[in-house]
Design a protein around this nucleic acid. Structure first.
Lengths: 360, 360
DNA sequence: ATTTTTCTTGTGTGCGAACACACAAAAATA
DNA sequence: TATTTTTGTGTGTTCGCACACAAGAAAAAT
């Protein structure tokens, strides 16, 4: 290990025992002020940096991490955060990390609550969570606060003291970007539609933020005279209902020439219209799900914004490692890039490998 | 460390000593066929995975890594790979990695050769290099081959046996993407210009690849009737010469409405034209250098393609770690995403933090 | 002056794996 | 049969750090 400075070196230089150096470095036990001074001086002089490898080996402890995520069988998007998290886990399990995932049905708040209980039962040292249900997630956060469990959120941020870190996109800014991208394809005074295909949209602050971002983008170029409208629709999984909704919408609002689908379900719009006669509209959506990509390749979707779901899961666990192993503070908010995806660059976001990345 | 399986566990289960288990696992020394069988069986049964933490500590060796990069004082772009590499180094130095950077003048092949000698003198275990000068880089690669030094390339790939990994973009595809992006802003039968602002463009295969990509994009939509032309220009650093060149170019080729600057010097075009009268052209370039970003914000550059220079340096070192510490084979080619950057999403690519990433 | 308590310090062991060394038993040679 | 050599195996030390324990020195209490 060449010229690394070790605790022994410091002890020798300072004329004390390794034990004393250890006490100074960890502020543990009693050390005479004189010796403390001596040790700190030598530490400074030699530029000592603890060997994390040896340290983690000696600590010989386990960090129990619980993850509370939507079951990916209820929505394809959620495969990605889970797989990113598991990749990170493979990378750090040697550091004594133990990961236990808990999955809940994306559409069922009670399933969330039930799994939340299981999480608390498990008494983890840290929690990684996608706070899909606002109220329920806050309850869990408060419980975590009582138990002193730091929480890392992905996908959606919540303003709660116990949240150590949020990893995900800046919803507002993604709306702004979507505005810009729609603008590319729209002629001048036309109308853009914000389409929320979700349950309980009212609760979903991030959807509202996206809408606001898009509105603000068009408001920033008032001379062009664009308008914005919004529609919420929950029955996106019932093909015929969805089809009628879309056909009527396009008929009724003939000035709408651009649609911003505020989550990963842009493909639902096009699936519903498959085989139908309808006028051309520009569509901007989120996420590189296979059906979205298929429509992107057919140029039926103009742009997709990549939310880096895999990276979200990956970084979330890495931040926990960073906190417990490296003892370094995490940034409260970590925004991931808003990747603009077209056919020509889609491949790179799909096959991106996280395997080579490393906690510092 | 909870229920981790250790060598001791295996020894016990198999009824042999830890030393024998070690011999089996490393194929070192002699072991009776019977005991080898027993050990392997138990390893399989208990799902033993060596503890990399303990392993690296016990190995107690040093891996000397040399890096041969352009001096960032000769070109702003090259700050990024260097800083990415240093970030990775901070993350892995505890694993016994020793990094020694060698910098050369970007415009001087002799400087490259001189530093190449210094690298060989240093006798590293691995080399990280940006092969700016085709011929000279190949010479060095051959020397590395003799000494058995694996090489990781960034920025430009070379077909040489000794190259373990290339990390960078797919030049051809970035040209295709540039074609698509220019297309957004051009009316239909107009002309696109590929502008190479570099010395010895003839040698730079990646620039030719980019051009080909762009040509192929437009060739894929022949019905639109786009044309493509190319210009090389070396005196990009002499403002008045550059200005005259550009003014004449725009005057002479009035059908050129889109310019693809094939490297990070798009800003040179606009700096040269600053204060001049000239007709509007769409510009697509590379890299988030501050002057490029300034013109992007002014909408004088339509799109920038981000080459992820920092990530290149980061991953290059990480791949070396992966090879020496984790003993895992690296992909021969690792293409980084072609990020499409506009004002609205530029920030995220700038402040992206690599600090939390980890080798697995 | 002696005992007890407090403070301060050094020594020693373990984490899990890598590797050197020693030593038995088996095989090969004399 | 005596001896050397080979083969196979176990023990022990090391990496750098964390932490338990013991023990000496100083201070307080008796």
């Amino acid at each position: 290990m060449s010229n690394r400075v070790t605790i022994k070196d410091i002890a020798e230089q300072a004329g004390v025992s390794p034990g004393t150096v250890d006490r100074v470095l960890h502020n543990r036990g009693k050390v005479s002020p004189l010796n403390r001074q001596k040790v700190l001086k030598v530490v400074e002089e030699l530029g000592y940096e603890p060997n994390i490898i040896a340290s983690t080996l000696a600590y010989n402890r386990t960090v129990k991490v619980a993850a509370l995520l939507p079951d990916y069988r209820t929505d394809p998007y959620w495969e990605k955060p889970a797989s990113g998290m598991l990749k990170a886990y493979q990378a750090v399990k040697h550091f004594g990390i133990e990961l236990t995932p808990f999955y809940f049905n994306l559409f069922d708040p009670n399933a969330f609550l039930q799994q939340a209980h299981a999480v608390l039962q498990h008494a983890p040292d840290a929690l990684l969570m996608a706070p899909i249900f606002f109220k329920e997630a806050n309850l869990l956060l408060t419980e975590c606060q009582k138990m002193g469990i730091p929480v890392v959120l992905i996908n959606t941020d919540l303003a709660h003291e116990q949240v150590m870190t949020y990893i995900g996109q800046d919803s507002y800014q993604s709306g702004v970007l979507a505005g810009k991208l729609l603008h590319f394809g729209m002629k001048e005074p036309e109308k853009a539609l914000v389409l929320n295909l979700d349950n309980e949209t009212v609760n979903a602050k991030h959807l509202l933020d996206k809408e606001q971002g898009l509105r603000d983008y068009f408001a920033s170029i008032p001379e062009k005279g664009f308008q914005v409208m919004r529609q919420d629709f929950e029955a996106f999984d019932q093909a015929p209902v969805m089809r009628d909704f879309m056909l009527e919408l396009l008929e009724k609002h003939r000035d709408v020439t651009g649609i911003f689908v505020s989550n990963s379900r842009a493909y639902k719009v096009l699936q519903a219209l498959e085989g139908q006669e309808y006028r051309k509209v520009k569509i901007v959506g989120f996420d590189l799900l296979p059906p979205n990509l298929a429509y992107l390749n057919q140029e039926k979707i103009s742009f997709l914004i990549n939310q880096n779901p895999e990276q979200q899961g990956y970084l979330a666990l890495m931040n926990i490692v960073n906190h417990f192993i490296y003892k370094r503070p995490s940034e409260r908010i970590q925004h991931l890039p808003l990747d603009i995806v077209v056919t020509e660059n889609a491949g790179y976001y799909l096959q991106r490998n996280l395997e080579f990345q490393m906690v510092g």
